[in-house]
């Protein structure tokens, strides 16, 4: 019989088909959907995050685990009641204008979701205006912006300026990431935080909503 540990292991191993199959089996065995997610899928992903931090697992491993977790979540999610998931907060996340790179950003999404955030993933090439519109619509606690190019990272600054103009800056925390970005740059544009990788991005988000 499948156990919840087997499911966590499948996510850890990045085995998509196994994670999907085991999630279904556990549900069929009568396990609560929320337990399947928290104790199985998220537990496996958390271990990947820990190993990533320790330097023993790497981005490709993490992507495989994220894929496996998504596959499992797709099985379980339709069975959840609307108020089942306790959310730590909402994060609006995107890759900034002119930039189509989203591998790292999508990893951050996975890590935020497994940490318990409700994530609005706005995709790539998102202009400052669209970000502000998104803030007005979704009232997120945090905005996450990603850029891979030194030319596009400047839109992070533009976005923060626009948030100020619209009087929204105080209502939301802004965090940034991506290869050319640094803590110095975050300080320079008055962002609330920077993180170098997906695991620490989730930690950063938690600390910003007071959940760390």
């Amino acid at each position: 019989m499948a156990t919840i540990e087997d499911l966590a292991q499948a996510v850890f191993d990045g085995s998509t088909s196994k994670a999907k199959k085991l999630s279904q089996e556990l549900i069929d065995d009568g396990m609560a959907p929320l337990d399947v997610i928290n104790q199985g899928l998220i537990a496996g992903m958390s271990e990947v995050g820990a190993q990533f931090k320790a330097g023993t697992m790497f981005v490709p491993d993490m992507m495989a685990a994220a894929e496996a977790m998504t596959a499992g979540t797709e099985v379980v999610k339709p069975l959840l009641a609307a108020d089942d998931m306790q959310s730590l907060g909402t994060v609006f996340i995107c890759t900034v204008k002119g930039d189509l790179h989203d591998i790292g950003k999508n990893l951050v999404v996975m890590m935020l979701e497994s940490a318990g955030f409700n994530v609005i993933n706005a995709g790539v090439d998102v202009s400052p205006e669209d970000i502000v519109a998104g803030v007005k619509e979704h009232h997120p606690d945090i905005i996450g912006m990603s850029a891979l190019l030194t030319t596009t990272m400047l839109h992070m600054k533009d976005t923060i300026e626009l948030l100020k103009e619209e009087g929204l800056r105080d209502q939301v925390k802004v965090i940034i990431g991506g290869a050319p970005v640094s803590q110095d740059f975050a300080d320079e544009i008055s962002a609330d935080g920077y993180s170098p990788d997906a695991v620490s991005a989730a930690d950063l988000a938690k600390s910003l909503v007071g959940a760390a």
Binding site: F58, P60, D61, M63, I103
Partner: peptide, 13 residues
């Protein structure tokens, strides 16, 4: 494109 997200990369990296 980008090779980071492929199974091939996972297998060989």
């Amino acid at each position: 494109g980008n090779y980071l997200a492929t199974k091939h990369t996972r297998y060989y990296f």
